[in-house]
């Protein structure tokens, strides 16, 4: 039985492992994964793309496809932003205020993208006026530039730092601001196989699922 899952790009590694574990425990199920930016996936779903499960990176995106989902979405993970610098922290970045430094190449996500909106809120709360040199349309292109040491400091998700295998290091934010985005998951109303789709969603939302998500840097809701 095939279950097609549309999931946020930031869930790539975690969701792949979740699907593998699920298929191992449930022979006969075949989970097909389609990753993309949450907004891109949303547009595809609204245009009628066939999917059984949707897992975007924030609740706002889920709300926009509310008419297409079955029942209520469940929040399965959280993620928050961290200051990220190329490994070694050559420029001695220590706080959010470093995002205002003129001598550094500073990168943020663009507003309108979940990570950019979250960054704007975070900066707002801390009263830091950042001086970005680039505002990337997605978190992956920002991460790539930090990995290549082209950007000296940026705000990316904690899960991205964990997934970068050591080429990026994070700086603890002592600001004590708890801003996070929450990852919902839901089955689609017209799922080809609603029971299989529901079984997978229940697995992701289970304790075992949360453990997998945790190893990839996501928090428990």
């Amino acid at each position: 039985m095939m279950v097609t899952v549309f999931a946020a790009a930031s869930l790539t590694d975690a969701m792949t492992e979740l699907a593998d574990e699920f298929m191992m425990d449930n022979p006969g199920y075949d989970i097909e994964l389609n990753f993309g930016g949450s907004a891109t996936l949303r547009e595809q779903l609204l245009a009628g793309a066939p999917a059984d499960v949707f897992a975007p990176a924030d609740e706002a995106t889920m709300e926009e496809v509310e008419s297409l989902i079955a029942g209520h979405p469940v929040v399965v993970a959280t993620n928050h932003l961290e200051l990220a610098v190329p490994a070694g922290n050559r420029h001695g970045v220590t706080t959010l205020a470093d995002l205002a430094r003129d001598d550094l190449v500073v990168g943020l996500c663009a507003r309108g993208v979940p990570c950019g909106d979250l960054a704007a809120m975070l900066l707002d709360h801390s009263g830091v006026v950042a001086a970005p040199d680039t505002e990337e349309p997605n978190v992956r292109s920002l991460l790539l530039k930090i990995e290549n040491a082209e950007v000296d400091v940026g705000l990316v998700y904690r899960s991205d730092v964990i997934g970068s295998n050591g080429s990026v290091q994070s700086i603890d934010l002592h600001e004590g601001i708890d801003l996070q985005n929450r990852y919902p998951i839901a089955t689609m109303d017209d799922a080809a196989n609603l029971s299989a789709a529901t079984a997978f969603v229940e697995f992701v939302a289970s304790d075992a699922g949360a453990n997998v998500l945790e190893t990839y840097g996501f928090g428990r809701p």
Binding site: D133, T134, E135, E136, P137, S141, L144, K145, V151
Partner: peptide
């Protein structure tokens, strides 16, 4: 985008 990033008013082109 990959090489040069995007900053409104400075490096953001129409396609970006």
């Amino acid at each position: 985008l990959t090489f040069n990033g995007s900053l409104q008013g400075r490096t953001q082109t129409m396609p970006l």
